[in-house]
Design a protein around this nucleic acid. Structure first.
Length: 570
RNA sequence: GCGCCCGUAGCUCAGUUGGAUAGAGCAUCGGUUUCCUAAACCGAAGGCCACAGGUUCGAAUCCUGUCGGGCGUACCA
């Protein structure tokens, strides 16, 4: 059956003598106040024919025959408002959501297309800090949203496992390292060495030269340096995998920067052949001054490589391997220039896919008193944050629902949900200031609020003595006619639109905000005495159970896109 | 200096791609539980949408400029 908005667009287009597509594009749910389900602003259409929009709306309203599924067509000033019969819209939205179930909100518009998502990408030998959560959680959510739109997604963890910093670490370890402490303490010990190196470097600048030499040796294949590097990497990956398990984040590929080591000579040769390389102060650069992008250093004075060199190799390799539709880089906004340079160089190399590469930036995580700095040891370990959140969730459960059978599991779901949601709820470009109170908040616009709302839905089914999956044969959707019900139905009907926008804009917060408004609508319904489910007459009860089920599906699917679990009880 | 990003309630943020009277959460004050979990709900208070111009029937949204903040600006990533 044709979706209701399309049918309205057809009716309105006929009455207005305007193209259906134009009308369909203008048709939108009105802002909260109105009662109508859809509204059509008539300004543009009126202007095109030099008429008064108020007149146009009034004439159109008179010309449209009000027949099911429409209950009312009204001209409100320059707007044309449409209201559906309660049963028609409820059947389409609620019935549709229940029928689609896990598929509700998805689409196949990306079928046959592959998107590569480069995200998380922490640096080896450094702790997985709270600041890595941003790329990890945002990138993972973008990947899930794209999959929901039908795209094939290749998630790549571009581990920072190559570069001068390993020269630094090798130097630090050779000078001050202690085998037993490395064995026993792992990453925190490596962090200690890294911090010490950066402190001592202040007084002894020659240390930096030593570090560059060590990295050069590493790149040249020096056995000793290799062994140390492999050791650092092994210690780090163990910790990272633990964190990813906790967050439920997976990758198709764990190809770090070192993976491209043997692929860089080819790129450098291609750059050379294209005449893009210049010598400048001993270094090898690509000059992008004409594009207003400065110069990009592809090789240092000592011939060792840089970040951009590896990213060029990675981009070419990825296109060769995946033939991607888009390649996304979920990396902090601070690296905007780097990506502009990278994409521009690919363009200059004549790579046809250069235009399909997208930097998806996000804002900096900062402390109240300034920037987070690994070099100074100013980091908050992600695991500490998660542990505290889970601990607090456990405490709250013991207070509010001490009989809950699955306490540990739910505490984990809720605690982690709070931390993850907190990072996804605002537009990603905004800088965020780390605040324990905010991260550990479970009330208001939070993940636990959404999870709690979902649990309420599940609880209604328990109270009704019904399995949520069980479907009544006949539901009289016309019973859903009270205002709180109608508003809940309207919002449920918009999941797919919001998933689409989130995919188009690579913006998980669109889903997060949508879920908050869905939960708010449901809770209003839930708290309204007129809308009680279990005590209602049999017909109304069935209809409301269907509405609760549709809400539950919407919340559960949306939470899943963000990487949050949806417990049935908490 | 130049480039990119941000500026909406005391604080943290939404604002459906330019539409109707700018909305939430937190904090403050007041209320709701013999009734499906109060991690909730209802109400009060809180606004020069940084500022100034411009485009438009219409601007928080688009353009220009100013101010404020953040980030970046070659041998780190």
């Amino acid at each position: 059956m044709t979706p209701l908005p399309d049918r309205v667009a057809a009716l309105a287009a006929a009455a207005l003598d305007a193209p259906v597509d134009d009308v369909r594009a203008l048709l939108a749910p009105p802002r909260d106040r109105g009662r109508a389900d859809l509204a059509l602003p008539c300004f543009q259409i009126a202007k095109r024919r030099g008429a008064n929009p108020v007149e146009v709306a009034r004439a159109a309203a008179a010309a449209i025959a009000v027949a099911p599924p429409l209950a009312e067509v009204e001209a409100a000033g320059p707007y044309l408002n449409f209201t559906f019969e309660a049963g028609a819209i409820a059947e389409e939205v609620v019935g549709g959501a229940i029928a689609a179930d896990a598929g509700y909100g998805t689409s196949d518009e990306g079928a046959g297309k592959t998107v590569v998502v480069d995200f998380s990408s922490p640096n080896i030998a450094k702790p997985f800090g709270i600041h890595h959560l941003r790329s990890t959680v945002i990138g993972a959510a973008i990947g899930r949203v794209l999959r929901a739109r039908g795209y094939a997604v290749e998630g790549v963890n571009h581990l920072g496992d190559w570069g001068t910093q390993f020269g630094q670490l090798i130097v630090a370890y050779r000078r001050w390292g202690d085998e037993r402490r490395l064995d026993g303490e792992g990453i925190p010990y490596l962090l200690e060495l890294y911090v010490r190196f950066n402190e001592e470097k202040e007084a002894a600048p020659e240390l930096q030269d030593e570090a560059r030499a060590a990295f050069r040796a590493l790149e040249a294949g020096d056995a000793d340096c290799r062994a140390l590097w492999a050791r650092f990497k092994e210690v780090s990956e163990a910790e990272f995998r633990r964190v990813y398990d906790i967050l439920g984040v997976t990758f198709e590929h764990f190809t770090g920067e070192s993976f491209y080591e043997d692929k860089m000579p080819e790129v450098l040769a291609e750059l050379e052949a294209s005449g893009l390389l210049e010598q400048s102060d001993d270094a090898t650069v690509v000059n992008l001054e004409d594009d207003g992008l400065g110069v990009s250093l592809v090789k240092k004075g000592d011939d060792s490589t840089l970040y951009v060199t590896r990213d060029l190799a990675a981009a070419i390799h990825r296109h060769r391997t995946f033939g991607f539709h888009k390649a996304l880089y979920v990396v902090g906004a601070a690296q905007s220039l780097h990506f502009k340079q990278l994409f521009r160089i690919l363009e200059k190399l004549g790579k046809p896919f250069a235009g399909d590469m997208v930097h998806v930036p996000f804002g900096l995580l900062r402390f109240k008193d300034g920037k987070m700095s690994t070099r100074q040891g100013k980091v908050i370990f992600l695991e500490e944050v998660l542990d505290r959140a889970v601990e607090l969730a456990r405490k709250i459960i013991e207070e509010k629902n001490p009989d809950l059978s699955d306490r540990d599991r739910v505490a984990r779901q809720v605690g982690i949900g709070a931390v993850v949601f907190n990072d996804l709820k605002s537009r990603r470009v905004k800088d965020v200031t780390f605040d324990w109170d905010e991260v550990l908040s479970f009330e208001g616009d939070t993940g636990p609020y959404l999870q709690y709302t979902h649990a309420r839905c599940a609880n209604i089914f328990r109270k009704a003595g019904r399995a949520p999956e069980e479907r009544a044969a006949d539901v009289d959707y016309g019973r859903l006619e009270l205002e709180p019900e109608r508003e809940l139905i309207r919002v449920i009907g918009q999941l797919g639109d919001h998933v689409r926008r989130a995919a188009e804009e690579y913006e998980p917060s669109i889903v997060a905000q949508y879920l908050l408004s869905t939960a708010a609508r449901f809770n209003r319904f839930y708290n309204d005495d007129r809308c009680r489910v279990v005590g209602a007459d049999p017909e109304t009860r069935e209809a409301r159970l269907a509405l609760v089920r549709a809400t539950q599906i919407t919340l559960r699917n949306g939470l899943a896109l963000l990487g949050l679990e949806a417990p049935d009880e908490m």
